[in-house]
Design a protein around this nucleic acid. Structure first.
Lengths: 226, 226, 226, 226
DNA sequence: AATGAATGAGTATTCATTCAT
DNA sequence: GATGAATGAATACTCATTCAT
């Protein structure tokens, strides 16, 4: 942005000769700005959840965030950019969560099933904590933009890759049946997505998460065949 | 010139003479109207596929259909109503397709797997024939309207119910493992949806549909466990 | 424009099979559109004259033209494009005017002065008839856009070139003093511009145009030296 | 850190103790203010030159000046007032320059021509030194405000009056031809303005200023007639 | 029945201005 | 005195909808 370049150059030239702004003030300004920014993201998630991305007006969002209309444009160029920021923040959060999951490769089928259950539980907790956000991403991202649809898919593919990696390992260790692990991994992602979607659309309480996970893990391991 | 004929008829009507319009003319008008109607639906599917429901303007749609702006409003009250018509037409087509699938209950596991493969093949053929339409429905319906989201879900639930019915039967016959068939059925729908979505977003040729279906059916029957 | 391309293609494909619009209707529509277009140009000249280009709002212009706000955008993408259209129309008018001035090369000094006076008179009449337009172009064009400033200058340069051509000829015929005709020609254009500007800014009646022209021509021929 | 000193002083004042600010500090503050003021004027000239008066935002100007947005309003109430200040500064500079030109009335034609050349040379030097400023004034002043347009015209008229005065004198002395000196004087101003404008818009180097002035003075004295 | 120019309510966007620090 | 984040009134622009033909 031309404006900022110019600013910085000039300011550098003048440094020392002019009144300096207190670092205290500067920090407070930064904090205020960051607060406003986060408020806008949160307000947008609420708004998108209620009225959808396309149905949410800038005026809805700023009203929810309790800031002025113009403030929006100090932080984003348009609604799309805000959605971008939401996805980014979510992505960073995901990374943060899954960093923690240290990757012990399971030594046998039982450990594998345990690990699967744990991973699904962690995922469920994440979704539970971010119901509206997840709902918005799943529902709206594909219609905001071809690029967002792509990004969402890449996310799913990453999960699928992870699953495929574990599957390949299990096959090599002999406690999984040889199969096209790529296809199976995507199928597993699909299973999860379908249940997440149903869960988000219905009453969150009307669900025994432990039973659900156990059933899914059993289904994935044993199939439904007798 | 056709137009002038029309004009004369009008003038006669206006004059209060209540002249009969020839049945031939009436039929031609009706045909023309129906043709325009279908053109609009097709144009809309194209437009929604390219720019999304929210990104498609009435002007886009009529331009693609090759009709005037005002013509749109002789057929629909608004864009939502047009989407409604698209879903209806698709629903009728689905019914038509699945009417044919007579419900022979499979007598053993092998028949079950055969029936599953056949059903998936039929589904795949349907999707193949209506790529853009299916893509639009999957992608856009949830954001058009709460009601459409609901309708789409009911469709998925119907597929799940059907699957659950067969599962319950198989369990009762002893060639399926006792399990929460509701959960498993939804999982199966999810598997299918995930692969349909990936298929639609990528090159249609880059897919061996037979292998895919075989893998999925095997996975559902046997799981990935060794 | 994608829209129109599509339209035309589709329409071509359907031609004959669909209801044709009466050529009468089509012509009336075109006429109406052209009328609206010209109204907008005229209204804009008035508005720019009164409040300047930058001070005139789209709402001012459409109000003066007596059309709706949206109508503006059916004809122009923005205010700049409208100014463009105004300049174009003026350019075409200029061409039309000066087409008529057949180029008799003057045979002697007296003919030369006569021709000069006539040209200036024609110019004065043109300015008189388009006071506001000329005022707007001279005053606003340089600040609308670098491109318009350039265009205006090219116009002046064209006049200067014409003048230089006659000067060169006169020099070659011996009834003009050898000089840098390029510089002199631009000076002549400047003289004219200065007087046009003053004329436009003051009361139009407070000016004896014949005297003015005679003085200027004498000055250009003889200089002020005794 | 200078800032903290300042803060302490403030606090003391607030506390009601009405401590004297050291005259040194007072002077330093004044100098800083004056520096900022001049920086803003210079930045504005640059900005107006690049983007025009109407195209330059307050934010552009403060960015170029390297000061904060709020600082602008400690010096001016709005952009117009800043333009005013620019014109004032220019006016004072003009006065300063022309003060020096003592008014020796030329005794004969040759002295007259010499004086004319000298005046034009001085003018050219002034323009050369203030290219952007002059360009801005010529281009923008007429569209900033009716008042500025008027002021600019008065400036031109002053030049014209001066020229007319010398002309009248020359006529009375017999080395200028009797003519409508008002009209001729304005024409001379126009000649100058046209060439200044062209000069400013093109490469400054691509001009032999001495030749230009000689040609113009010759033209004004002798006309182009043989 | 079809048309497309015109419309204006609805919305996004800009930018001069304020004000707490 | 200087600052820059926040503001919202002013304005540009969009696009579904109407209507005369």
């Amino acid at each position: 942005m031309e404006y900022n370049e110019l600013r910085l150059v000039r300011q550098a030239l003048k440094a020392g000769s002019m009144a300096m702004i207190s670092p205290l003030r500067k920090q407070r300004d930064l904090d205020r700005k960051e607060k406003t920014y986060q408020d806008l993201l949160d307000a947008a998630i609420e708004a998108f959840g209620d009225k959808g991305y396309h149905g949410s007006l800038i005026s809805d969002i700023v009203a929810r965030a309790g800031v002025g209309q113009g403030t929006f444009y100090r932080h984003f160029n348009d609604k799309r950019e805000l959605f971008d920021a939401i996805m980014d923040r979510f992505g960073r959060m995901l990374l943060g969560e899954f960093d923690v999951m240290t990757t012990h490769l399971p030594g046998n089928a039982e450990q594998y099933r345990k690990a699967s259950r744990d991973a699904l539980l962690a995922m469920a907790a994440l979704v539970e904590k971010n119901r509206k956000l997840v709902l918005v991403l799943l529902r709206e991202a594909p219609t905001v933009d071809r690029e967002f649809e792509q990004r969402l898919n890449e996310l799913f593919d990453q999960f699928a890759s992870l699953a495929a990696f574990y599957l390949d390992y299990a096959v090599s260790q002999g406690f999984a049946r040889p199969c096209n692990t790529g296809i199976v991994a995507q199928a597993i992602v699909g299973m999860a997505l379908r249940h997440i979607t149903k869960w988000l659309q219905n009453d969150p309480k009307a669900l025994d998460i432990d039973e659900l996970i156990t059933e899914l893990v059993d289904f994935a391991f044993f199939g439904f065949g007798a």
